[in-house]
Simulated scan of single mutants.
Amino acid sequence: MSLTAVAFTLLFVAITVFVSMRQKLGLERDIVIGTIRATVQLLAVGLVLQAVFRTHHLLLLVPIIVVMIAIASWHAARRGKGLRGIALRIGIAIASTEAMIMLLLLGLHIIKSTPQYIISISGMTIGNAMVIAGLFLNQMRRDIESSRGEIETLLSLGASARQAIQLSIKRSVKASLIPTIDGMKTVGIVQLPGMMTGMIIAGADPLQAVRYQILIVFAFTSSAAVTSIILSLLTYKLWFTQAMQLRQLGKE
């Protein structure tokens, strides 16, 4: 794709800004900032990856993946505002998921141990885990608020923090997995995923592209479940004070 063609893609942004202005949505500033950030970030990543792919040193991948996990954790932690240490716990959950996926893929020789494969799949895995973490925390916040009376009653009857909040955890884990499971049901029929589409556009054999997409879909499903469950185990105590009282959401 030429630079001229890339420049023409700004028409899509212009249309979005126009719709926002026309409907008085007030999203123009966010759209412009998002466009600039996305462009700068993608160009920067492209230059970094180009250099890494040329060196073929796998050790260079470690700081890149660490940075990706740190940024993903910080972003998802915004959904858990008021919960002390939430960013660290999200980081542990995402890192554990990333380690599991990479160990299986590399250990079983499903993918090659090259920067191209490791960085690409790690980026998708970490990004997916970040979204799942955000969905889980959002649902937990809503569920706890709506079930506050029930949880406080269980606590007054002598239930532990885990027992009192167990139903909220189950509902939140389930809710965070619904988009991933729904995506599995419609992939290839309603939507053609990005990785598969990108490979086909690049000239790869469609069947080969499908095989890699199946890998990503199954890995995403597993990483979503693992991330959500690990995060639930690491964070359920954060919703309570040291006196075992249900924390006021949004407050320290």
Rank of each mutant, 00 (worst) to 15 (best):
S2D: 15
S2H: 12
T4R: 11
T4K: 14
A7E: 08
F8S: 09
L10P: 07
L11K: 11
L11H: 12
A14W: 04
T16H: 11
F18M: 09
L27E: 11
I31K: 12
I31W: 11
I33A: 11
T35Q: 12
T35K: 09
T35I: 03
I36V: 15
A38F: 14
T39N: 10
Q41E: 13
L43S: 10
L47N: 09
V48T: 11
V48N: 03
L49P: 01
L49F: 12
Q50P: 03
A51C: 06
H56G: 09
H56V: 04
H57N: 15
L58I: 13
L60D: 12
V62P: 02
P63F: 03
I65T: 11
M68H: 10
I69T: 08
I69H: 03
A70G: 08
I71T: 10
S73A: 15
S73W: 10
S73F: 03
W74P: 00
W74C: 01
W74G: 09
H75G: 01
A76H: 06
A77T: 05
G80Y: 00
G82V: 01
A87I: 01
G91M: 03
A93M: 05
T97K: 00
A99M: 10
K112L: 14
P115R: 03
Q116P: 00
I118A: 07
I119T: 06
I121Q: 07
I121A: 04
I121D: 05
S122K: 02
G127H: 01
N128R: 02
A129H: 00
A129Q: 02
V131Y: 01
I132H: 04
A133K: 00
A133D: 03
G134R: 00
L135C: 04
F136S: 11
N138T: 13
N138Q: 14
M140P: 05
R141E: 13
D143L: 04
D143I: 01
I144L: 15
E145R: 12
E145H: 13
E145T: 13
S146C: 04
S147T: 07
R148F: 07
E150F: 11
E152W: 07
T153W: 10
L154N: 08
L155Y: 03
G158H: 01
S160E: 12
S160F: 04
A161W: 07
R162M: 13
A164L: 09
A164F: 08
Q166Y: 10
S168D: 10
I169H: 00
K170D: 13
K174M: 11
I178V: 14
P179S: 03
T180R: 00
K185S: 13
K185Y: 09
K185R: 14
V187W: 05
V187Q: 06
I189V: 15
I189L: 15
G194R: 05
M195R: 04
M196K: 07
T197I: 05
T197W: 02
T197K: 09
A202I: 08
P206R: 13
L207G: 02
A209H: 05
V210H: 12
R211A: 06
Q213F: 05
I214A: 08
L215N: 05
V217A: 14
F218E: 02
A219M: 12
A219C: 14
S222M: 10
S222K: 01
A224R: 04
V226W: 04
S228I: 02
S228T: 06
I229T: 09
L234G: 05
L234P: 06
Y236N: 05
L238M: 14
F240P: 08
T241V: 04
R247W: 10
Q248A: 10
L249V: 09
